[in-house]
C-alpha cells in the first residue's frame, strides 16, 4: 500500500471522527486482525553508536513533509512507553549495557526495528557492507533481542520514505 493511500485513509478517519460521517468503508483497508500494534505504534529510538546520519533521517520523519504522526506512529521519550525499539548503528561495546537496559525497560509485547546498513544484525556474521563489522569496538545484538527484530530498513542512511514504508508494513505483522 502506498503511503498516499494511507494518508487518504487517515483523512477519511479524521472526518468520520470529527463529524460522525459514514463514508464508504468497504473500500477502506482495515488493520489486519493479527496485528498487535495496528494504527498505533510508539517508538523509542536507540543509537547504538551510529554515524548520526540515521538520526538525521529519523528526526526528519517529524517534519511537515513526512509527518509520521499522521499514520498513528509516534516517537516517545521513554522505553517504558514504547512498543518498538528502533536501533541504529553497529552496536558498540560501550553501548551494549545501555541497550540491554533500554530493551529490558520496555513492556511486552515489544519488537525491534533496525535502521541503517550498519545495524543489520539478523544475518549471521554481520553485514559485509558495514565498514565497522571488523572492529574490536563493535559487538552483536544479544540473542534475546535479535529474536524480536521484525524489520530492517536498509540504506546508508535509509531515506525517510523507506523508513515510513517499513513502519507501515508492520501494521500487517
Amino acid at each position: 500500500m502506498s503511503h498516499r493511500q494511507l494518508g487518504k485513509r487517515n483523512w477519511v478517519n479524521r472526518l468520520q471522527a470529527l463529524f460522525g460521517l459514514r463514508l464508504d468503508t468497504e473500500t477502506q483497508p482495515r488493520p489486519s486482525r493479527g496485528s498487535i500494534f495496528s494504527r498505533s505504534i510508539f517508538i523509542r529510538h536507540l543509537d547504538g553508536g551510529s554515524t548520526n546520519a540515521p538520526e538525521m533521517e529519523l528526526t526528519a520523519l517529524s517534519n511537515p513533509i513526512y509527518d509520521l504522526a499522521q499514520y498513528g506512529i509516534h516517537f516517545v521519550p521513554s522505553p517504558r512507553h514504547a512498543d518498538i525499539l528502533i536501533v541504529t548503528g553497529p552496536l558498540t561495546w560501550n553501548m551494549l549495557g545501555p541497550t540491554l537496559a533500554t530493551f529490558e525497560a520496555m513492556p511486552e509485547p515489544k519488537r525491534i526495528v533496525t535502521v541503517g546498513d550498519c545495524a543489520s544484525f539478523s544475518e549471521q556474521g554481520g553485514d559485509p557492507d558495514c565498514l565497522f563489522s571488523e572492529s574490536y569496538a563493535v559487538t552483536d545484538l544479544p540473542s534475546e533481542m535479535t529474536t524480536k527484530i521484525v524489520a530492517h530498513v536498509a540504506g546508508d542512511p535509509p531515506t525517510p520514505r523507506a523508513i515510513i514504508q517499513s513502519l507501515l508494513r508492520l501494521d500487517k505483522k
Binding site: G49, M95, L131, S135, Y136, V138
Partner: peptide, 15 residues
C-alpha cells in the same frame, strides 16, 4: 562520552 566509539582509527590502518 565514548559510547559511540567504533574503533575507526584502527579500522583505517586495517583494511
Amino acid at each position: 562520552l565514548g559510547y559511540a566509539h567504533k574503533g575507526i582509527e584502527r579500522l583505517f590502518q586495517t583494511r
